[in-house]
Nucleic acid binder design. Sequence first.
RNA 1: GCCGCAGUGGCGGAAUGGCAGACGCACUAGACUCAAAAUCUAGCGGGGGCGACCUCGUGCCGGUUCAAGUCCGGCCUGCGGCACCA
Length: 804
Amino acid sequence: MERVYNPNEIEKKWQDIWEKEEAFQASTDYSKPKYYALVEFPYPSGQGLHVGHPRPYTALDIVARKRRMQGYNVLYPMGWDAFGLPTENYAIKNQIHPRVVTENNVKHFKNQLKALGYSFDWKREVNTTDPNYYKWTQWIFLRLFKKGLAYKSEMPINWCTSCKVGLANEEVVNGVCERCGSEVVRRVKSQWMLKITEYAEKLIQDLDQVDYIEKVKISQKNWIGRSVGAEVDFKLVGKEETLRIFTTRPDTLFGATYMVISPEHPLVEKYKEEIENYKELLAYREMAAKKSDFERTELAKDKTGVEISGIKAINPVNGKEIPIWISDYVLMTYGTGAIMAVPAHDERDWEFAKKFHLPIIEVVEGGNVQEAAYTNTNTGKLVNSDFLNGLEVSKAKEKIIDWLIEQGIGKKKVNYKLRDWVFSRQRYWGEPIPIVHCEKCGYVPLEEKELPLMLPEVESYMPTDNGESPLAVMTDWVNTTCPCCGGPAKRETDTMPQWAGSSWYFLRYTDPNCTEAFASKEALDYWMPVDWYNGGMEHTTLHLLYSRFWHKFLYDEGLVRTAEPYQKRTSHGMILGENNEKMSKSRGNVVNPDDIVREFGADTLRTYEMFIGAFDLSASWSQEGVKGCRRFLDRVWKLQDMLTEEMNYSSDLEIKMHQTIKKVSSDFENLKFNTAIATMMALINEFYRKGSVTKKEYQTLLVLLNPVAPHMTEELWESYGEGKRLYQQTWPGYEEDKTVESTVEIAVQVNGKVKATIAVGLEEAQETVKEKVMAQVSVQAAIGEKKVVKEIYVKGRIYNIVIK
RNA sequence: GCCGCAGUGGCGGAAUGGCAGACGCACUAGACUCAAAAUCUAGCGGGGGCGACCUCGUGCCGGUUCAAGUCCGGCCUGCGGCACCA
């Protein structure tokens, strides 16, 4: 043997060579076919790399390396999503500037990633906290603002009564402040909002153009929550004014026996003089405001509410007076904040009606509405509904909408669950919002030449006790002049959320040092869209939706070429601890990738993470499994000992070689890394069985294995390859007709039970196959005296005899 | 409660509707060794039989089919996500 496989030595060697040779830099020669592979850039946390990170990175590294060997100009970049709460909190606690904390964390992360041998183009590294980067984040925000897509609105924030600071949802645990345990209440604050709802329809429709795994498309659609229904105006008794509701079931209008408005509905304030129990309503509203979302869901089973006395509504279809209630199960943020309640055909209304003894009228037959709400819309006809009687639900919907339009009291309406994006954070460590408030001119955007608006140095990063951002105490910075009238004005002191920088980073990678624009048009036109984007399931709603929204906006502005940023999106499963639970410090089941690299090598870690199980499912860590993968690599290494100089595939393994190339090639494309590796394991088992491997066979194996275990294969290639580097080789091809054996073993079944296996020619006629089948003693025995009713022959697979 | 995903040997997991358990781990035996480790070779779902073999078996209950882990209907359990969305 040449020498022992020593990964620590050879891995460093090749990482240095690749860097020196600029092996994985994307070329700016735009005449070549391109391939843009993208993984979600990490938040550089203080804990360093987690074994969960290498799973997606290795997967797309495999794809990227394979694409390069297939002749593509590949862009596989990496960067840092570095603004964010944990860094800021760490900075506060340890009295270190968040910029310094970020620098250290990035350095640590980068070293760890480099040790894993990824083919990232480090020349294109981006960092969302770099002013040269966030200049363009601010620039895009200004474009949004100028198009009316950024606006101010009163929104509730989580307010810790003890720390006197606004908290992120994440910092509210079971309704109390994470750090001090005090009560958290909702407080209203004027905040910047982005009008993502304006893109709701496009965000749903354009999913048809892209290749996302189905569950990602489903979660995007569910989050946007498009529903078609109607808006209907209900007259209030003795008033001119009407109460507008939204319903998805206008067909059930005859069954509306009461109405419910959200506790915050303006109607309550407007008629407070006439409402006899105004104080009671007010008390209820206060109680509802205190509830966190968590508590509201907990209380879901027990409906609460108060009837408004003094005001009634009229059901427009039958003129009946019906009561109006307030209840927190109706939300001001969805629809019109008011509903018509049809207890017979809506579960929440039904529970409410049962509790408060309100009438339940069946209008769609098919269930027992006194026992449970009947919500099936596919079967059952309308009853107790005058001119709708006898119609199916879908027909009744159409007819009632026509009727509402005719009467001038309603219309068809599409509603979305999606809400506008709250874009302000009362925090230091984020992009400053480049807006100035002037008493005379209102909210005025900074001029482009003023960008980047730098984050000022502050003494303390603590949010102030009046709910403002830490920037608010920086009077020198806050007080400025209005870009519009030159008068005194104040800067916006809230910062942007972490989502901002990650909403367009994939565009910056195409041209990371561009100073004229967020990226040059040539670079964008060439590289975009991203060909394959992989990330975690936890980002399949918000990050994906936000970045698609920004990209669609830039598309409408004529700044990018395609309506969608990502052509293909896949998601990986989580890596769990050995005990099958989520890895966490408190559970004590965290595995540090550095330890695995030190003990087994990066190639083993990469191989193991790909072999651990189906890529899209969660998998639990196993130290024994890691050893198995190291053993596999050792066996590949030791094949050197049985190497022959033969520059062909050996005749008995030719088919196996072609099959392996085919299987590995397609498995890499379909995220089936575990079976690709299993196939290569099976191949080397063949070499061991024979005790020899030809040079040609060995070379092919090295190329196939290279994307998974790049260092070791490159080292072996140096001794047994064809001169040039392995990473410069061409991906091997295969011949389809050499992947199939000419004779195959097929199973013979009698009534679906296997009775024998026989060897047949693949193209052999059924007649001669039948002769062989019938010659089998076990088959004859199984048939016995019974009669053969039917025979099925599936070529090269199975021969089934049906007897009676 | 709603949405999504999963359930296959001792374990991780394979199976375009076509011989369930590929590949790996663990385990057992043999080779090598003074010995152990490492490595190599072989075996390895349950029950039965000396044996060629027989039989049961992919969470549960039904169905479709010549044939079901796979498709359909109804459940059970576990994991992840959630905004009572009218």
